[in-house]
């Protein structure tokens, strides 16, 4: 089962390498990972998606918590949460396809953020499934390049992840 973990960690050199190392060392899988400092510059927040049953996720959570630089770990999957990912996708846009890509982008509330004579770069945000769906929807057009941020997210409502 796909899980989204949110991790608060000390914003220190080497902290991220310990998390990556842990996953490699213990044979856990990282599907996506995104990290940046928070409003408090001493803390970074990391969101990762991984696969595993309850027992495995429990171990991952515990092992993450054991890392000295990790301040908090939350499995967002367990709670009502918002998940977003940003995708920039460059597609061939020539002839009929030019209008078709524009229309599809509108349907997905994407924005065309760069234009050339033969290509569009579209920005789409949303949960993973929506981004996957967009790629399928423009399937007939030639996709030239895709970059995705990986999922990021937080709990809905008043619940917050903080020190």
């Amino acid at each position: 089962m796909r899980r989204i973990l949110a991790v608060l960690l000390e914003n220190e050199p080497g902290a991220l390498s310990r998390i990556i190392g842990l996953f490699a060392q213990r044979n856990y899988n990282i599907s996506s990972l995104t990290v940046a400092p928070t409003e408090d510059n001493t803390l970074s927040r990391l969101t990762m998606t991984t696969e595993g049953d309850d027992q495995k996720i429990e171990q991952i959570t515990k092992q993450l918590n054991k890392l000295i630089e990790v301040v908090k770990v939350v499995d967002l999957t367990d709670t009502d949460h918002v998940e977003r990912e940003i995708m920039l996708i460059k597609v061939r846009a020539e002839g009929v396809a030019r209008e078709e890509v524009k229309r599809t982008a509108d349907v997905f509330r994407g924005q065309i953020i760069d234009v050339t004579a033969n290509a569009y770069t579209v920005q789409v945000t949303g949960p993973k499934a929506k981004l996957d769906a967009f790629i399928r929807a423009i399937g007939k057009t030639t996709v030239l390049e895709v970059v995705r941020s990986g999922a990021t997210g937080l709990s809905r409502g008043d619940k917050i992840l903080t020190v």
Binding site: Q55, E58, Q59, K62, Q63, N65, K66
Partner: peptide, 11 residues
């Protein structure tokens, strides 16, 4: 003392 040792191999 280590929570990660608990239920790692045997529940």
């Amino acid at each position: 003392v280590d929570p990660a040792s608990i239920s790692k191999i045997i529940a």
